[in-house]
């Protein structure tokens, strides 16, 4: 049974709930892998039916009929990881160094099968004397496996605060 908080804004995140802690650990692991640019390991954190999205419309909930910055299913994630790692993409070869923090977690729903969280992410990307700031809300849905090692992301949506404005072209992932 899913226990959905009645009021998202005031819902208390229970750090004593092991299901929530597992989800947050997975999210932090994902963030560390992205900053380390360990894309093969990053990809393995996603469920086969998982989606990774950076929409242009911050409010979008469905992505099929609109233009997005990223809208990756498993096939596109595989292609993207190949691009980021194979050495042909000059933007990825000379990518900015990034450090990100994911926090301000709000619990959207929790069950023994799935945890949905909303978070804030602040990322600083440094390249050739410039620091670019990438801030956004992030929606996560984590599917809990039999053990924490089998927990997988089924949905990550990065809603940049400047999503419909001009952002730099990036050689890394959010």
């Amino acid at each position: 049974m899913t226990e959905a908080p009645t009021n998202t804004a005031s819902s208390m995140l229970s750090l004593t709930d092991p299901r929530v802690v597992r989800a947050i650990e997975l999210i932090w692991r994902e963030a560390a892998l992205l900053d380390a640019k360990e894309y093969e390991d990053w990809q393995a954190l996603y469920a086969e039916d998982g989606i990774y999205v950076i929409p242009i419309d911050r409010a979008a909930e469905s992505f099929d009929d609109v233009l997005n910055m990223v809208y990756d299913d498993a096939r596109m994630r595989q292609l993207r990881v190949a691009r980021m790692t194979e050495g042909y993409a000059i933007a990825a070869v000379d990518a900015a160094t990034t450090v990100r923090n994911v926090s301000r977690f709000v619990l959207a729903s929790v069950s023994d099968q799935e945890v949905a969280l909303k978070a804030g992410q602040i990322l600083v990307a440094y390249k050739r004397g410039r620091h670019d700031l990438w801030a956004g809300d992030v929606d996560y849905v984590v599917r809990l496996g039999a053990t924490p090692y089998e927990d997988r992301l089924v949905r990550k949506v990065v809603r940049l605060i400047d999503a419909d404005d001009a952002v730099p072209a990036a050689g890394f992932l959010l």
Partner: peptide, 25 residues
């Protein structure tokens, strides 16, 4: 248009498979 949107996303935009490399150049 869904097909065209996905093809556009594949190459274009700040996280496309083409634009960031152009931008680096």
């Amino acid at each position: 248009n869904r097909t065209r949107l996905r093809a556009h996303e594949h190459f274009q935009g700040p996280f496309g498979f083409g634009t960031p490399d152009d931008s680096e150049g």
